[in-house]
Design a protein around this nucleic acid. Structure first.
Lengths: 189, 189
DNA sequence: AGACCCGATGTCAGGATCTGTCATCACCTA
DNA sequence: TAGGTGATGACAGATCCTGACATCGGGTCT
């Protein structure tokens, strides 16, 4: 028999989300989260750098999803590369996850401190994607601009994906949103 | 004779930036900032919601610069509206400010907590701009996409503006960057 | 002038976040 | 069986941030 139950990290994440939903982020203390997971406060901070981070574990995978797709792509046009990266990200958003994504997003939007961290993650993805594009030979400032635009499209598509009553797939919404961005930015004829 | 020296807020801002530059953000305590400004810790938090915010006072003006420009514009094409908003923002970045902007940016980039707050401010501007566009009748998702793209262009142009050796004006760089974004997103022919 | 209110600040107490340090104990390896 | 390793516990402490109440200069009303 182990000295402690394994999977402390997962228990902490689950406990944190539960408590944030129940009583709000500000009203939840680290002690409460740790207690519910059956560990001490100190252990919480060994797994997560701060209280907010417990809601954002797993976002590194999203980063690699984008960067890998960019690195793997064989398309000559950078815009097509970005499009492929967006398509690859759909792996992270299967239909079963939609309800969970809705509640998690509600928690994040309800608290500025969490929204702040969420934005940081998005910028991280944008910068990583820009870096991957640069590695493929895309020049600046195109690489950075395209990296950020890709994330913008991603964010808007995600917002639509979790909107009440929306039933189109993440993949459809991403392509649709990308088209909308291009139409918005190309000159009228 | 007044009971206390007036201008506590300004003194606190100056003290904060000085100390952050000298010894780093993490190594600077609120007590030190307050002491240098000649007030108590409690007074610091009456002026700023948290330690980071002392570096971001004034960013609301940037928001109104964008939203006012959008509201005032008479251009029929949303893209031209965005372009005018970018042009309006140059008022915030006269040549004299460039050295100050460089040091402030260095401090922000050196600390993740500050970078996080900076991103939140940028997103606030993006959302406010999108809202102003919507008020002018721009439909979604175009309004949100254009709002975010405008801020992306702004950020990239700003990075170029403070780059070592750069001497073009903020206005030139903004227009140049906007063109680059459009070229990146239009299909090859 | 005197009474009065208001706003910015001081003072004090205390909870919550996060870090450093060292001890503990199951498990693995030699 | 001895020792090393890794995750955790236990404890102390600095710092951040908030609530509650007191203070006092300056403006306003009468």
């Amino acid at each position: 028999m182990a000295r402690w139950e394994p999977g402390a990290r997962e228990r902490l994440q689950a406990a944190a989300l539960d408590l944030f939903v129940d009583q709000g982020y500000d009203e939840t203390t680290v002690s409460q989260i740790a207690a519910r997971a059956g560990v001490t406060d100190r252990t919480f901070f060994r797994h997560f750098s701060d209280k907010r981070e417990s809601l954002f574990a797993g976002s590194e995978q999203l980063v690699t999803l984008f960067t890998d797709a960019v690195a793997r792509s064989t398309a000559p046009d950078p815009l097509d590369v970005a499009s492929e990266a967006l398509a690859a990200s759909t792996a992270f958003f299967p239909e079963e996850r939609r309800p969970w994504a809705r509640t998690r997003t509600a928690v994040v939007l309800a608290n500025p401190a969490l929204a702040e961290r969420e934005q940081l993650k998005m910028v991280t993805i944008a910068q990583a994607t820009a870096g991957a594009l640069r590695d493929r030979g895309v020049e600046e400032p195109a690489a950075t601009l395209l990296g950020h635009s890709t994330v913008t499209v991603f964010q808007v598509a995600f917002e639509r994906w979790i909107r009440d009553g929306e039933d189109r797939s993440m993949g459809d919404l991403l392509q649709d949103t990308l088209s909308a961005l291009r139409e918005t930015l190309v000159p009228r004829t």
